[in-house]
Design a protein around this nucleic acid. Structure first.
Lengths: 230, 230
DNA sequence: TCTGCAAAAATTGTTAACAATAATTGTAGA
DNA sequence: TCTACAATTATTGTTAACAATTTTTGCAGA
């Protein structure tokens, strides 16, 4: 499918997005040769992309066995959400410092899009937009480092929910996002911080972090379909 | 020097530490061939290690030019310290949640070591221990994610201070660390958080973030000496 | 003497072939 | 029929050679 030669960063990005948007579920095997075919790249190029993903913790690498999409443990799941609370409180702090009034339009537009996806029942889009809201907030906060860190955490959250939220019922909802934006609009950053904190705690509560359902490791050829689009 | 074959992770760690402990200052060129000689490894292995460091932001990679130890900009310097304040407040939160009483001995032992290094005027050791204190705190907080994130931030701080603190005078001091530990010992986590925050603000204040002294890019063969020990 | 161009040297980027390790499958024995 | 062992297969890990690009050096001309 890719006619033009892809840079290794593009390969990394494509795989990253496929994982973050849950098209490649935890446990999926990432066979190097197969990825070569898909991207039309040689093996070392693929390998470099996988190395980066392993470094990020999104991919687990077993020596002489290969690479797999990471399946988070219960402890890791809790840690992801705890760390997100820490970081996203910091995002609100950064917005307070840097001023948030000029960014409300973009946030409200995003929420409108979320509501639309929810109305249409477009699950894939809902997942993508839920994460994107938090990323948007971080990018508006003018702290590239916090944004990078959160990007990592959001993608890990996706893995966590894929494993510990068998029912795709209560996804990260637009209403809770709207509450955060409303507080920002009012200039009430303490309320915004509290709303964010509760939003993340609520998201964590919807998970079933006791009974680990270790059973959705499908081993079909999902790679081809999952990585098709950029 | 390395008789046994080093794994690429060990190579990564060695270079990482050399940067984090300021033996490889910002702007240093990391020539692949030279690194091959030093580590007795083939070029692709070295390259993988450099890729990871680039991903971390410690190394800047210019296409067809090579790899250099990153020279942070003023904006990046401010962002590093802002982000550290966010993350390290989170570390204190984690300690509160997880209990800190059983960890005081290790912290106090560390501070004693810092005082010793300061008394002896062992600059390299002071730099190493200053960063290690914050890392120790993060590791005791039982949040692997926060610890990983902070590890990154501490090493970036080293680059920042290398560039913006020409006088190696007021390093991250033992007394301020002691104040944090004292608050933890008293179970007063709010005070600990405030002490941490002020400690980091103070560290940022000692930097000269206006006049960028772009002049300490020595191009000797520092690689050999800097990377000698593990 | 200084500037601009061209050629050579050095360094990185890429690919392809080779070696080593682990998983699987088939077979023999109990 | 089940288990243990061995050979095969598949996949990853490594190395070495090749190609492309950039920088430097040398030279000619103003």
């Amino acid at each position: 499918m890719p006619e033009t030669k892809l840079t290794e960063k593009q390969i990394y990005e494509r795989i990253w997005r496929s994982i973050a948007e849950r098209r490649l579920p935890p446990g999926t095997r990432l066979k190097e040769e197969r990825l070569c075919e898909i991207f039309g790249a040689s093996r070392p190029r693929i390998r470099r992309a996988l190395d980066q993903l392993t470094h990020d913790g999104l991919v687990s690498h077993i020596p002489n066995r290969g690479a797999f999409v990471t399946t988070p443990s219960v402890d890791e799941a809790r840690d992801v959400f705890f760390t997100r609370r820490v970081v996203e409180r910091g995002v609100i702090d950064a917005l307070k410092k840097h001023g948030a009034q000029d960014k409300l339009a973009a946030l409200e537009a995003h929420i409108a899009e979320e509501r639309e996806a929810l109305a249409e029942g477009d699950t894939a889009r809902i997942i993508r937009l839920s994460g994107a809201f938090h990323m948007l907030l971080a990018e508006l906060a003018a702290s590239p480092l916090l944004a990078d860190i959160l990007r990592d955490l959001v993608s890990k959250s996706t893995l966590v929910t894929a494993v510990f939220q068998p029912k795709c019922d209560t996804q990260c909802g637009p209403d809770e996002h709207a509450a955060i934006v409303a507080a920002l609009a009012a200039g009430d950053f303490d309320t915004a911080k509290t709303a964010m904190d509760e939003h993340l705690q609520e998201a964590e509560r919807t998970l079933k972090l006791e009974a680990s359902s270790e059973g959705n490791i499908l081993q079909d050829d999902v790679l081809g379909t999952a990585l098709s689009e950029g």
